[in-house]
């Protein structure tokens, strides 16, 4: 079994690793779950919105089991992971991509790290963040979507978005101890 950090290579390599992982288990209803060395999991889900609740359940349980993240931070993790998985699934649905969305969660070095990888068409995070008018502007009520990235960036301690036309890799970091005066 490969540690999670060694699965950050090209997509073809990652798939090869997954296929050869001895502990890869066929999960319920199409989900594919493998253990990650050092306390964590990898999961592949079909690009369907009804799998998002499974992702947030599994990731939150792993964080609770393997880290000392406080309960309220695990709640934050649930929301952020849910938003990230929803964005990834929606990217596949909109682009017609039938491949799985990959989510990994590992707990190392005082932090919970979550990766959500999709093969959607990518997006410009900065322009998305600027899309919604200020809340005091009545036009804000015309924006019923687009809050997901805002929530992710606010809730996670660190967010790294690597997005291109070949897909998006989103990494969230939740530290188990936060500096005083932080959110």
């Amino acid at each position: 079994m490969k540690p999670a950090s060694r699965r950050n290579d090209g997509r073809a390599d990652r798939r090869q690793n997954r296929a050869s992982a001895p502990n890869a288990l066929p999960g319920a209803a199409g989900a594919d779950i493998a253990n990650v060395e050092g306390g964590g999991i990898e999961i592949e889900i079909p690009a369907r919105t009804d799998y998002v609740s499974l992702v947030r359940l599994v990731v939150a349980e792993v964080a609770a089991l393997e880290s000392s993240l406080e309960p309220e931070r695990i709640d934050d993790l649930r929301v952020a992971v849910s938003e990230a998985a929803t964005n990834a699934v929606q990217a596949h649905i909109r682009s017609g991509c039938t491949h799985s969305v990959r989510v990994s969660c590992c707990c190392i070095d005082g932090a919970v790290s979550v990766r959500v990888d999709d093969e959607g068409p990518g997006f410009d995070a900065d322009s998305l963040m600027k899309a919604a008018p200020p809340v005091e502007n009545p036009a804000r009520l015309g924006h019923e979507s687009g809050m997901g990235l805002l929530l992710i960036r606010h809730l996670a301690d660190e967010v790294i978005i690597d997005s291109s036309s070949a897909g998006t890799k989103l990494r969230l970091l939740f530290r188990t101890s936060r500096p005083s005066g932080s959110r």
């Binding site: 929301v79 938003e83 009520l141 687009g146 997901g148």
Partner: peptide, 19 residues
């Protein structure tokens, strides 16, 4: 138990419709 941006969007839509 759980609210994400989809639920927020529904609330905003309801607010807009009513106002």
């Amino acid at each position: 138990d759980f609210l994400d941006s989809f639920g927020i969007g529904v609330i905003v839509g309801a607010l807009k419709r009513l106002r």
